[in-house]
């Protein structure tokens, strides 16, 4: 994973079409187009797993069904704990077959509509399966197959969050991706102790108030925000880190990426 940073490859999040889309074919075409552009430009494509509990198609089935290219290095799928054991194994097997090598393992936002892995299914005696058990499960059942990252939230109480991070690292996390950071956040520095590559998320939409939900405090709707300049600030502040771009605009922002990280 470190080489993503060394080779200046952005992690680009591409949201998959929603399950309930009434214009699915259009959405699929647009997804495929973004995917290929990011792929051809040499970046890493990150495909979330039902973020915010909104049902969307899985990255792996999209790649299979649309026949998208996979270069071991250039795809990272997110996998959360809201799956049946059968679907999870089918996804992991397909990921091996396709040669997808990176994944971000998270507990997940969840929705009452989604099934949830149980401790019994993955073989751990726990009240609830979190990213940690899922990670350990994948390490146990698919040894050596994937480079696995985990999530870090600088906006949660940090003693708690760092304690969780220790567990994730003990379970075999190889890189850390943060929630969106604006300019800088002191909590990020506490991640150096783990000695793992850190990828910082940068929010690429001008509508910064949409972040309120994820950072846990209210950002007023009219707050001015320039995503590209924030990205540049982050790059200057954290020169050793990689960058995860959420809600990237493919019309205007994507073309200038190559000039941003030189």
């Amino acid at each position: 994973m470190q080489h993503h940073i060394d080779k200046k490859m952005f992690h680009i999040e591409i949201l998959s079409p929603k399950q309930k889309s009434q214009k699915l074919e259009e959405d699929l075409a647009s997804f495929a187009d973004k995917y290929r552009r990011a792929f051809d430009a040499g970046h890493v494509i990150c495909i979330p797993d039902n973020p915010m509990g909104n049902l969307a198609f899985q990255g792996i089935e999209l790649i299979q069904e649309l026949g998208l290219p996979v270069h071991g290095d250039q795809v990272s799928v997110h996998i959360n704990t809201f799956h049946t054991k059968r679907d999870l194994d089918a996804m992991l097997t397909a990921a091996c077959d396709l040669g997808i090598s990176h994944m971000l393992v998270i507990s997940g936002d969840g929705s009452p509509r989604l099934p949830k892995l149980t401790g019994k299914e993955v073989g751990y005696d726990v009240e609830a399966v979190t990213s940690v058990e899922l990670l350990r499960y994948i390490r146990r059942e698919y040894p050596g197959k994937f480079h696995i990252g985990v999530a870090f939230n600088p906006y949660e109480p940090q003693d708690h969050e760092l304690e969780k991070m220790h567990r994730k690292v003990d379970a075999g996390a190889e890189f850390i991706t943060t929630q969106p950071v604006i300019e800088s956040h002191p909590a990020v520095e506490s991640l150096w102790q783990f000695g793992l590559p850190v990828v910082i998320e940068c929010w690429m939409s001008k509508k910064i108030h949409l972040l309120s939900e994820c950072v846990g405090y209210e950002i007023p709707e009219d707050t001015p925000y320039d995503p590209v300049s924030n990205l540049q600030t982050l790059m200057a502040k954290y020169p050793k880190c990689g960058f995860y771009l959420a809600i990237l605009g493919f019309k205007t922002q994507f073309p200038i990426l190559k000039d941003v990280w030189k």
């Binding site: 399950q19 074919e25 089935e61 999209l62 679907d87 989604l114």
Partner: peptide
Amino acid sequence: RVPKLRDCR
């Protein structure tokens, strides 16, 4: 069950 992409198409 959560429908698969192929079945949705």
